[in-house]
Simulated assay, not measured.
Amino acid sequence: MERDEFINALKREGYAEIATVTRDAHGTVDDHVHPFEAKALILHGELAIRIGTAEQVYGTGDVFHLQADESHSERVGSEGVQYLVGRK
């Protein structure tokens, strides 16, 4: 999915806050939750998200979606990661 197409989709779906996040290579974030729903498009790099015992790896062009208060951990790939995220 292209960046502009994704932004338009976020707006249609009610995501009022849109931001770009950049994380350094090999970074990790232990289990945590967010008080908001998040939907993101990977712009560059790779991000692995673990929910419970299942881990999904997302690369450039992939979209991930997390519900509010959904416990998850994150692991950044060897090139770092940059993603565009909508929050509501």
Rank of each mutant, 00 (worst) to 15 (best):
H32D: 04
H26L: 12
G45F: 06
E13I: 06
D62E: 14
L43T: 09
D69F: 13
D4V: 11
D31W: 09
S73F: 02
G80M: 07
D69I: 03
D4E: 15
E74M: 11
A16V: 13
G45Q: 10
P35M: 04
G52E: 06
T53R: 13
V76M: 03
I51S: 04
R3W: 04
D31M: 02
T60S: 12
L66V: 01
I49K: 11
D30W: 01
A68G: 13
D62M: 08
H72M: 09
K11Y: 03
E13H: 10
G52Y: 06
A19G: 01
G77K: 07
S71R: 15
L47D: 06
V29T: 10
A38M: 12
E70M: 14
V57P: 05
D24H: 12
F6G: 09
Q67P: 00
L47R: 12
H26E: 12
G14D: 03
E74A: 14
L47G: 06
F6I: 09
G77E: 04
S73E: 12
A16Y: 08
Q56A: 10
V29E: 09
I51V: 15
L10E: 05
T20E: 15
I51F: 00
V76P: 03
E79Y: 05
L66Q: 03
T53A: 13
N8Q: 15
E46M: 10
T53L: 09
A9Q: 14
L10D: 08
D4C: 01
T20Q: 11
E2D: 15
A48R: 07
E55C: 06
R75G: 01
G59D: 04
G14R: 06
E55F: 01
E2A: 06
I42S: 09
R12A: 14
E5Q: 15
L10T: 08
A54C: 05
T60I: 02
R75K: 14
K39F: 01
F6M: 11
S73Q: 12
P35T: 09
Q67N: 11
P35Y: 05
E13P: 06
A16W: 01
I7C: 07
V63D: 05
T22K: 14
I42V: 15
E2C: 02
T22F: 01
